[in-house]
């Protein structure tokens, strides 16, 4: 499952619904965006939240989304964007 992504690559946030703690907001699941920046590897918060050591570390990416595609009837402009930090195991390649 572990994979790395390149800046400017198109990705999709996995449309998953795990029971426990995670840092992927619901409104971004299943949505497509572009890798804006690679932040390096961090301990996995989904394990840290339960007292585990969070290893192996997971790559964390800054993913950019187009607001007009996130929200039906978005009233801002076509260039407005949103960025969020998403872990590698929540991302898959998009075409």
């Amino acid at each position: 499952m572990s994979q790395s992504f390149a800046v400017a690559q198109r990705v999709r946030v996995r449309n998953d619904a795990p029971k426990g703690h995670c840092r992927t907001p619901h409104y971004l699941r299943g949505r497509e965006g572009v890798i804006e920046r690679a932040y390096g590897a961090f301990r996995n918060p989904e394990q840290l939240a339960y007292g585990a050591d969070g290893l192996p570390k997971r790559e964390l990416y800054w993913v950019r989304f187009e607001q007009g595609r996130l929200w039906p009837g978005y009233t801002g402009t076509a260039t407005d964007t949103l960025v969020a930090e998403i872990y590698e195991h929540w991302l898959e390649r998009a075409e």
């Binding site: 840092r23 992927t24 907001p25 932040y39 961090f42 918060p45 964390l60 800054w62 950019r64 607001q67 009233t75 801002g76 402009t77 260039t79 407005d80 964007t81 949103l82 960025v83 969020a84 930090e85 998403i86 872990y87």
Partner: peptide, 27 residues
């Protein structure tokens, strides 16, 4: 974002990209 900014008295022209940064994880 533009509606929220307006409540703070901030209005930006349409040629400015507003980028919302959701602080979701480790930064």
């Amino acid at each position: 974002s533009r509606g929220v900014l307006a409540e703070f008295g901030t209005s930006l022209p349409d040629d400015v990209e507003i980028r919302v940064v959701d602080s979701t994880a480790d930064c």
